[in-house]
C-alpha cells in the first residue's frame, strides 16, 4: 500500500496534512492522541472520504473495516448478520458457512451463532465487528480502536488474531492505547495534528526517549525545571517516585525508556 501526499480538509480544518507512507505485508499501528487524524486517514483508505490531494494505492480490491462506532441489525442473529456481511463482501454462497464459522471462532463467538444481536453485550458486538472485518480474508484490514470495550482476555485474543495475519496481508490498527500496538505491530506510525510525526518499530519508537526518562523521589519534584512531563507516580518500599520525561537534564537517575515514553516524546516534541 502506498499513500502519497494524502491531504483531507474539512472546510478550513486540515485533518490529514500531506501524509506519505508505504506498507508491506504486516501489522501497522497508527498511534496518536485524539484528533490526530487517525480515523480520517482510515476513512480515506477505505473510500468513505474523498482525498483533497494525493493518492492511496493498494486498497482497490476491497478492504475489511472495523469503524470506531458501528451498529448491527438488532433483529438478526449473529449468523444472519455475518451472512449479510459475507454477501456484501461478495463471498460465494457455498463458501460462506465455513468462512463465517472460521471468523466467529477467531473471536470466540461460536456458541452465540444463533443468538440475536439485541441480546449481545457491547464487548461481544465489538468482537462481531472484528469477525466481519476478517470475513473473506481481505488483503487489507483496517481496525479503528478495535479493543475498546474488550475485556483483558479478549484483548489478548485479538492480538493473537492480528499476529496470525502478519504474513497474510496488511493490517492497520488505529488506536491511542500504546499497549495495543506495542506487542503486535511490526511498524508504528505516530500521527499528531494530521502530520506523520515519526515511524518505526516499537524499539525504535522507544529509543526516541533515550536519555529523557528520569526516576526521582517525590521530594525532588520541586527541583524539576525546564520542559518536563510527570508520566507516572509509583510507590516503592514506602517511598513515592516520579517517572518524568524531559528533554532537559533533571535530578534523579536516567532509566531505560519504554515505547510509551518514546510515543510521548514524539507527541510532545521533546
Amino acid at each position: 500500500m502506498k499513500i502519497t501526499q494524502c491531504t483531507k480538509r474539512f472546510h478550513k480544518r486540515i485533518a490529514v496534512d500531506r501524509l506519505s507512507a508505504s506498507f508491506d505485508t504486516g501489522v501497522i499501528g497508527l498511534l496518536g492522541p485524539n484528533g490526530a487524524g487517525k480515523t480520517t486517514l482510515l476513512r480515506c483508505i477505505c473510500g468513505i472520504y474523498k482525498l483533497n490531494e494525493g493518492s492511496i494505492e493498494g486498497a482497490e480490491n476491497g478492504v475489511g473495516y472495523l469503524p470506531q462506532q458501528f451498529g448491527m441489525f438488532r433483529a438478526l442473529s449473529v449468523y444472519q448478520m455475518m451472512e449479510y456481511f459475507a454477501s456484501l463482501k461478495k463471498i460465494p454462497k457455498h463458501a460462506q458457512k465455513d468462512e463465517i464459522e472460521r471468523c466467529v471462532e477467531l473471536v470466540h463467538l461460536s456458541d452465540r451463532l444463533s443468538a440475536r444481536i439485541s441480546t449481545l453485550s457491547g464487548g461481544m458486538i465489538r468482537r462481531l465487528g472484528i469477525a466481519q472485518a476478517l470475513l473473506g480474508n481481505p488483503e487489507v484490514i483496517l481496525f479503528d480502536e478495535p479493543t475498546v470495550g474488550l475485556d483483558p482476555e479478549e484483548r489478548i485474543r485479538f492480538k493473537n488474531v492480528v499476529a496470525l495475519r502478519r504474513h497474510q496481508g496488511i493490517t492497520l490498527i488505529s488506536t491511542h492505547i500504546v499497549n495495543d500496538v506495542e506487542a503486535v505491530c511490526d511498524t508504528i506510525l505516530i500521527l499528531n495534528e494530521g502530520h506523520l510525526v515519526t515511524s518505526g518499530t516499537s524499539h525504535q519508537i522507544a529509543q526516541l526517549a533515550y536519555g529523557k526518562v528520569y526516576m526521582l523521589s517525590e521530594d525532588q519534584e520541586s527541583n524539576l525545571h525546564g520542559l518536563f512531563f510527570v508520566k507516572d507516580r509509583v510507590e516503592e518500599d514506602g517511598t513515592s517516585y516520579l517517572r518524568v520525561l524531559s528533554p532537559d537534564a533533571q535530578p534523579g537517575k536516567q532509566i531505560e525508556p519504554t515505547m510509551e515514553d518514546g510515543y510521548l516524546c514524539a507527541i510532545k516534541n521533546y
Binding site: 468513505i48 478492504v63 473495516y65 472495523l66 469503524p67 462506532q69 458501528f70 451498529g71 456484501l88 463482501k89
Partner: peptide, 10 residues
C-alpha cells in the same frame, strides 16, 4: 446511523 459507515465501505 451507526451502521452506515461500515455498510458504505462494502
Amino acid at each position: 446511523g451507526d451502521s452506515s459507515e461500515l455498510l458504505r465501505v462494502y
